[in-house]
Design a protein around this nucleic acid. Structure first.
Lengths: 336, 336
DNA sequence: TTGTACGCGTTATCAT
DNA sequence: ATGATAACGCGTACAA
């Protein structure tokens, strides 16, 4: 029944300073240390975080900002997995986590975060080109790590995958299996990953001397846009479709099958993400796997390094992706 | 460039107390109030939460505890939707949210939460019969609201749906369309909702004078267990299957269709949750809809009431459910 | 209406 | 190794 460090000190017969030392690891004689710890166990005393944070300037609490429409955020498995990765990494460091989703405007969210005062740092998803929230965080004194990054973020610490490279590799794969008219369905405009993947597709096409000019249709990372986009591309006579993500590919698959075309014989199909359902599609979907949980864990690790040494140079981490080749581009064709 | 309230006071030419009053709403002359606010705008001063919390005892931050295996938590749309509801309700009150998932043991999680010191209260999901985390939270002085509840939680504030009633209603619906041998696939053993739904099924069966004794098979809320359970029930010659949730029903549907049986002509099928995919199944699934987002919002609202008046009697809220009748139990049958 | 002074629970500095 | 004592930034009686 000791609520404050003073009570605990009195019960242990030592000064408050000594108790603080046994908690935080100062030099204390083995004997008194044991006595204090004994009393601590009996009274199940717990240091107050607010006070500790005020005095020491550190709280062991970090902020996580995923400024996405709350009705959509957990629709896309990406964000759930990202949270898992961060949550686990934070728990491993017995650190706490404050969470902000996209309920208020970015400006308001920025304001609340900056006024917390007790956060040791922040991990924020950076997926749109213009983002005052990310800009504000980076401009503040709060240690900040980005998940994803814009061109302008060269001075910041971030964790990302090389979307350009991955999309290039996938496109090259499609070319290598003999496809020439490869259509592309983009992700949401102004989204960084979407822009990078498109760039990778274009780069591979140009390198192979293929025309990509009029084979690009705009999507929004969701299945309906994939269904619509695939229809337009089929009319353009493509022999392969590369969708900006698996959800888009799912929509495309339905349109292709609906028109009685065979995958991959008539049209090869590829996605991006390797979501759970990708392997269960008919035919199983060729796609790009990125370790989202690992990205979350890496972001946390990165942030803690930044907190330890705020002056060091920015830590830019590019995690590897993996080409997962399944029957939607090569092999036995449809099971139907 | 004012970091503390003292600096801001100096710049405004008033005392720190006056500044505090214009921030927290004490009696201040309109004139000085305006002046202080002007300076506040220029210097974009932000009060420090740790200090504020230490001095006032309130932080405007609440804890959210969903002690589920982090690899599973966002697999089930339930938890994502619950978070959305809470996140939105908290943002509406400009309150912050600390999140704990099931990374550590329940005892460890309990310890960390209790030692935060700055939480105004906690919302915790209560879905297993024995839960030291929930017990510990309820035994503490921290205002706590449960999402879901055990029989033992009669003294606690909680938000839940009446699973017994809803399952009873669904079973009664199946009886009303002429089914007599109605099989049931349960949810995870020791899960509260699973137990309540099973009880509701049994109650309705008994009231109708039907045998439910040997028509119950154990599942775990996931599709594979539904597929297996449906197989066993079909062998028992059922004319209807009620699954503990939609995922389980999904598995059951595959088994039924795989055996060449028609839904609902040969076997009527019902689920629970009304997840997004329920309406897109073939045939569309009859199920029970519960407003999960609303439950989250209600839990937050409940918690804030509890914080305002900790002495008041516990607030037990049962949210309504809705029977959603689709073609898997009545009407045109399969589209296949 | 405004200012003074104390307390919130901890860490950290400085003697001892 | 231990103990005073001063911060940390803010809220709030109390006094003026």
């Amino acid at each position: 029944v000791a609520r404050t460090i003073d009570e605990l000190a009195q019960l242990s017969g030592v000064s408050r300073a000594t108790v603080s030392r046994v908690i935080n690891g100062g030099s204390v004689s083995e004997k008194t240390k044991r006595r204090v710890q004994a009393v601590m166990g009996e009274t199940n005393y717990r240091p107050n975080l607010a006070a500790r944070s005020l005095a020491s300037g550190r709280s062991n609490v970090v902020g996580v900002v995923m400024h996405i429409d709350p009705h959509l955020v957990f629709q896309d498995p990406y964000f759930g997995q990202l949270m898992q990765g961060m949550s686990t990494a934070l728990a491993d460091r017995s650190a706490g986590m404050m969470l902000w989703l996209g309920n208020r405007s970015k400006e308001e969210t920025l304001g609340t975060i900056l006024s917390m005062g007790l956060l040791d740092g922040v991990v924020v998803t950076a997926n749109t080109l213009d983002d005052p929230l990310v800009d504000g965080l980076l401009a503040s004194t709060l240690p900040t790590v980005l998940v994803g990054h814009r061109k302008a973020d060269l001075g910041a610490s971030y964790v990302d995958v090389d979307n350009v490279h991955a999309a290039d590799a996938m496109t090259t794969h499609l070319i290598s299996i003999g496809r020439r008219r490869i259509g592309y369905i983009t992700g949401t405009p102004r989204n960084v990953a979407a822009a990078d993947r498109l760039a990778g597709y274009r780069r591979a096409m140009e390198r192979a001397g293929l025309n990509s000019h009029d084979l690009v249709v705009v999507g929004d990372f969701n299945a309906p846009s994939g269904a619509a986009g695939a229809g337009r591309l089929i009319d353009l006579g493509v022999d392969a479709i590369f969708a900006a993500n698996d959800s888009t590919a799912l929509g495309a698959l339905e349109t292709i099958a609906g028109r009685g075309l065979r995958i991959p014989e008539d049209i090869a199909l590829a996605g991006f993400d390797d979501l759970e359902f990708a392997v269960q599609l008919d035919p199983p979907l060729t796609t790009v796997r990125q370790g989202v949980r690992q990205q979350g864990a890496e972001a946390v690790s990165n942030l803690f390094q930044l907190i330890e040494d705020p002056t060091g140079s920015p830590r830019r981490v590019l995690l590897p992706t993996e080409l997962v080749i399944r029957q939607s581009t090569v092999g036995g064709g449809s099971r139907r």
